[in-house]
Simulated scan of single mutants.
Amino acid sequence: MRVLLVEDDPVLAREIAHALRAENFAVDHASNGEDGLHMGETEAFDAAVLDLGLPKIGGVEVLRGWRAAGRGLPVLILTARDGWSEKVQAFKAGADDYLVKPFRVEELVMRLRALVRRSRGHADARISCGPLSFDAQVGTFERDGLPLRLTALEWRILSCLMLRKEIVVPRADLIERVYEGDADVDSNSLEVIIARLRRKIGRDMIETSRGLGYRLTASGGAA
């Protein structure tokens, strides 16, 4: 899962980014509204954390710009403004959730996970695909009831496939949502991670659709 963080406070931004990466999220950071608007319009993200009091362009204007451009990513407003009028304005602009500073990073993580899960059409926090299960609220995977140990990149790829199980996910889409924007991505790195995942969950559970991408399927669960 890849998150866009638009926050002008450098200390808070580092704290949030560190906490999200510790929970396996890929994080791209914009320190002002102008950069945040551009990144949200031109790159693929699973969700955004957006401050309201930003330099250059305010958070509400950024959000309006994303929605006007047809960007439907879930947006969590993170701000010190706790007045009712500010909340109304943010939700009218297209916000999906609103968290007031100060806050606990654990709550931020849980809210983001819920937003991403619901945006993919999953009402239940536990998602299953054959012998594989994913607790999307806690962020843990199990196969046949036993916990899976995954690297951050393996977790991001498998969560992306799980949230769109039985659907072919384009290779480019996986890369966009797994790697941060400044990452130096080797042409074969995705295939290497897919191969590692197949060894952990069952080779036939991840199908390759040549020229398109990959599909997580329950039909290969017995392999």
Rank of each mutant, 00 (worst) to 15 (best):
D96K: 08
R111F: 10
F134E: 02
F45R: 00
L112M: 09
G72S: 15
S219C: 08
A13I: 05
A48R: 02
A136K: 00
R196A: 02
K165G: 01
D28S: 15
L108Y: 05
V169E: 01
I16Q: 04
D186G: 07
V49W: 05
A172N: 12
T151C: 07
R67N: 14
A80Q: 15
K101P: 07
G58M: 15
A13L: 09
A17T: 02
V109E: 10
F45Y: 05
V27S: 03
E107G: 06
A22F: 06
S159P: 04
A90D: 02
I127H: 02
A30V: 14
L108Q: 13
G220D: 08
T151N: 10
A222M: 13
L108K: 12
A223H: 15
W155S: 01
L73I: 07
L108P: 03
R149L: 00
D182S: 10
G33A: 07
A195Q: 05
G53I: 04
F91R: 12
R111Y: 07
P74D: 12
G53P: 06
S31Q: 15
R149K: 07
M39F: 10
L37E: 04
M162T: 05
W155E: 02
G83N: 14
R164S: 08
P170C: 06
V192C: 00
R67Q: 14
Y98H: 11
C160W: 00
A136P: 01
S133R: 06
V27G: 06
D182Y: 12
R117K: 13
H122E: 14
V116L: 00
